[in-house]
Computed example of a mutant assay.
Amino acid sequence: MPARDAFVDLVLGGRCAGCDRPGVTLCDGCRGLLTRLTPFRAWPDPRPPGLPPPTASAPYADEVRRLVIAHKENARYALARPLGGVLATAVSSALGKRDGAWLCPVPSARATVRQRGHDPLRRITKAAVRALRRQGIDARIADALRVVRRPDDQAGLSAQRRTANLDGAFALRSRWAETLTDQPVVLVDDVITTGSTLAEACRALEIGGIPVLGCAVLAATRRYSASGS
């Protein structure tokens, strides 16, 4: 357990970030829950144009939602490894029979990373890569995208307004263009809501000549169709 999490558990008496039971950062019950998740196709409704097939490991609710927030906003670093396992489950499902892929995380603005004190998605993606490699999948992280225009806060925006808000927000880092050419690429994020962020990130990759195999996320909000169509 990272020193910060051990300190929090010591000072606050220790509570599970998922269910708030007294104890450690992640109790056995919540840890077991994360290992029993079944990935599903999480198409937003409506679908944004250009979004490759998105796969989620869980609905964004209850324990999973609390764990994502605790890691992202409260810097509970010890949660990166179990959440990385959750993301790895979605990636593995998205890959099907393929035995390898580059995982490209959706980037955050530098100011957001500074404010949080860490880059939660990249930390989780690195943990997912390690989990996938333990399963024999040749996974690698590709920091191929950068934020070129910081969008406004997405909270409360409709799907259409989110799409407009994100237009031109990302760009491909040119040094990755040759590396990712003709390679399987999976775009990863923590949560899918309208799919606008993923669609815009995919567009940035594809403009640079990098097609995206699919998207994998930890969780999907209730704004999805699980029909698989």
Rank of each mutant, 00 (worst) to 15 (best):
Q183F: 06
V24A: 13
R81E: 01
G209Y: 15
R140G: 11
A80V: 02
L121K: 11
D190K: 07
A80H: 08
A58L: 09
C215L: 11
A177D: 01
A70W: 05
C104E: 00
G100I: 00
P44G: 07
L198T: 06
T55G: 08
I192K: 09
A201Q: 09
D28P: 06
L198V: 08
I210G: 05
A101V: 00
R21K: 04
L213D: 04
V147N: 14
V24D: 09
V24P: 03
A216W: 15
E63N: 08
G195A: 02
A90G: 07
A177K: 15
V68A: 10
R149V: 06
D5R: 13
A6I: 04
V217H: 10
I210Y: 13
R41Y: 15
R134V: 00
A88G: 00
L198P: 05
E73D: 12
S92D: 07
D119M: 09
P82C: 02
P2L: 12
S196Q: 03
L67S: 04
P48F: 06
A226E: 09
S108R: 10
V129K: 11
R223L: 05
G156M: 07
R76M: 01
A70Q: 00
V91G: 12
D28H: 13
D9L: 03
R175D: 10
W102T: 01
A70K: 01
C19Q: 05
Q154S: 07
I207T: 14
A128M: 04
R150Q: 14
G214L: 09
D182T: 04
V212H: 14
I124E: 03
T25G: 08
D99H: 14
C19A: 03
A75L: 06
R114H: 10
G18T: 01
A144W: 11
G29M: 03
D45N: 13
P39A: 04
Q154A: 12
Q154Y: 13
C202M: 10
F170V: 00
F40K: 07
G228W: 12
A216S: 11
G23Y: 15
R149H: 10
D153P: 09
H118C: 00
L67E: 08
L79R: 03
A42V: 11
L33W: 12
G168I: 08
E63W: 15
R149P: 05
S108N: 04
R222C: 09
T35A: 14
V113L: 08
D167Q: 13
R222N: 10
L180H: 14
